[in-house]
């Protein structure tokens, strides 16, 4: 009897294996249930992990969905270059739709020329969904990022306006997912819902995944604002009152330049980043997102309006 027990012990999955298997299962449910899904790929670390999971799920076949990026036009060029290179390496189709086009159409109107375009991505995303007739979009959001996300389903129903209704979510039981939707409605799917930031970094290390260079420590001009570091860029220039410092920093999360802040870091390898992440004292969004600081419920509000 005891030998059998030992065998049972050995034959179980590590936490990364388990998370990987769950995510592959979710991706295949999307493929099996949805007629025309898309995978949102920004060149950020979470969506880079999604691509590796899609390779594990569907190779040697092709992905049963195109990659879609909603570009604010305010992304770091290194990240955009990485996005294009990665899509080409994989031989998968990449669709890019930009907020600038929505602005030209008049569907996005900025309050001022300097307003962040980040929240306006929702409009462009809905337009892309309509244009291509996507019935499902796969994204790399995680429940540990934010408390509105902690309550969101893995298969999350959105109405015709892309809205999330937290009080009226479909029950989600076992690993039986329900992606059924009427025409015009949309399901958002989050295969790495159950991953933490540390899990993502450990997986990147284990799989040897390449990342855009700005994830690693580099020297950059920044100013300190509200306890965060704001990069000095043509889009976010320093004002006369700002004290510009040149510091060693890295990005923990990568998004629109106007709302993503780097953190102080000397980590130049994934292993060093893991060591920093394991001992960090600030949450990922808390350290890096200028848009979530507006109010305690900023993300909940944006999601209700169709944001990822």
């Amino acid at each position: 009897m005891s030998t059998l027990e030992v065998q049972v012990q050995v034959r179980s999955l590590t936490h990364l294996d388990w998370l990987e298997a769950e995510a592959i299962h979710i991706l295949r449910e999307v493929a099996g249930q949805c007629a025309n899904p898309a995978l949102l790929f920004s060149g950020g670390k979470d969506s880079i992990v999604l691509l590796r999971l899609a390779e594990k799920a569907f190779r040697p076949g092709r992905f049963p969905f195109p990659l879609l990026h909603i570009d604010t036009g305010h992304n770091y060029p290194e990240v955009i270059a990485f996005r294009d290179r990665r899509a080409a390496e994989l031989g998968e189709r990449l669709i890019v739709r930009s907020v600038a086009d929505s602005m030209a159409r008049g569907s996005v109107v900025l309050k001022s020329p300097t307003e962040s375009r980040n929240k306006h991505q929702s409009v462009t995303l809905l337009e892309a969904i309509e244009e291509h007739g996507f019935d499902a979009c796969i994204g790399g959001a995680r429940r540990d990022e934010e408390k509105a996300r902690a309550k969101e389903r893995i298969f999350s129903f959105r109405d015709e306006f892309g809205q999330w209704d937290p009080k009226n979510q479909r029950p989600e039981l076992w690993d039986i997912y329900n992606a059924r939707a009427h025409k015009g409605e949309n399901i958002r799917i989050f295969p790495i819902s159950n991953w933490t930031e540390l899990d993502v970094w450990q997986y990147i290390a284990r799989e040897g995944l390449a990342l855009p260079p700005i994830y690693f420590a580099h020297v950059r001009e920044v100013v300190r604002k509200n306890g965060l570091l704001q990069p000095v860029t043509p889009l976010t220039p320093a004002s006369d009152r700002d004290v510009v410092e040149t510091l060693s920093v890295r990005f923990r999360t990568v998004g629109d330049i106007t709302c993503t802040a780097p953190v102080l870091s000397y980590a130049v390898t994934v292993e060093q980043i893991i060591a920093e992440t394991a001992t960090t004292t600030i949450t990922e969004r808390g350290a890096t997102r200028l848009d979530d600081q507006a109010s305690e419920a900023a993300m909940e509000q944006r999601k209700k309006e169709g944001y990822f």
Partner: peptide, 26 residues
């Protein structure tokens, strides 16, 4: 504490998922 709607009513509406790790188990 979760959503605005919950805080307003002082109740929990829905299942929330949380994560922690002891280093040996997630």
């Amino acid at each position: 504490d979760g959503l605005v709607a919950e805080r307003e009513q002082g109740i929990t509406i829905d299942v929330a998922y949380r994560y922690f790790s002891t280093g040996t188990r997630k």
